[in-house]
Design a protein around this nucleic acid. Structure first.
Lengths: 120, 120
DNA sequence: AATGGTAGTATCCAAATGGAAAGTGCTTTC
DNA sequence: GAAAGCACTTTCCATTTGGATACTACCATT
């Protein structure tokens, strides 16, 4: 007789799996968390500010990732009516709901690094 | 005068950024969270069990991702002394420390899906 | 001897990811 | 009027990722 999936074949597991996929696809890529983290620290930053703050990112990537985040309403983009045109990027109210997740991510990463050091 | 990074140029931010990079690189890829989640539900599962439970994954990916997780001590691999050889995969004690992170990820994903439905 | 189960590996290939460098258009300052 | 700052976009390219398919090798049952 053939075996079939059983554990994940329950509604609650399907929902959990889908939720993980959703979150991952929205926050995929090398830079999303860095951008969000930096914006949470800096509150309001321009494009060039972000380019300077986030070590290693290029303008192409920054531009693309900001567009992704804006599309998902996690970051707002406001063109300011200033002499040389400036743009303000900020974390939206909804984007701020990611703070606990980013915190967990950070806490785990710090603990991981310590566990490696500690075991040496 | 040229501007320089200021916000992220503090030790605490450097550590945070590095922590995020660490966590992301360990848990990168399409399947790591699914594998961990399934193993947390099932406690002990064989290779073919995982292949059946995780919808869409192929044996090549499963094999590679399990090796990654094993290398980082998040999953254990035990060859059992059974008639046809079987292997038991399980989440390690250390891997279990990811539970809060996976929970946050799941909670946020569920809330995200509801916010899309709710705003329609 | 054929089928089916376990646990993978090997090969090939297409698509996605992301980095470097240069260019655009505008404005202000020296 | 040259340089420099802002906010990007475009082009090109190399690497990474991951999926499909096939295959190995061992054991048990029919």
């Amino acid at each position: 007789m053939k075996k079939k999936a059983v554990i994940n074949d329950t509604p609650v597991c399907q929902v959990r799996m889908q939720a993980i996929s959703d979150t991952m696809s929205i926050l995929s890529g090398k830079w999303k968390f860095h951008i969000l983290g930096t914006l949470m620290e800096g509150h309001k930053l321009g494009f060039m500010d972000l380019l300077r703050e986030i070590d290693g990112i290029g303008s192409k990537m920054l531009s693309k990732e900001l567009q992704d985040l804006e599309m998902n309403h996690l970051v707002s983009r406001t063109v300011m009516n200033t002499k040389p045109i400036t743009v303000e990027y900020a974390v939206t109210e909804y984007g701020a709901t990611l703070a606990p997740l980013i915190d967990e991510l950070t806490k785990w990463g710090i603990a991981y690094r310590q566990s490696i050091h500690g075991s040496k």
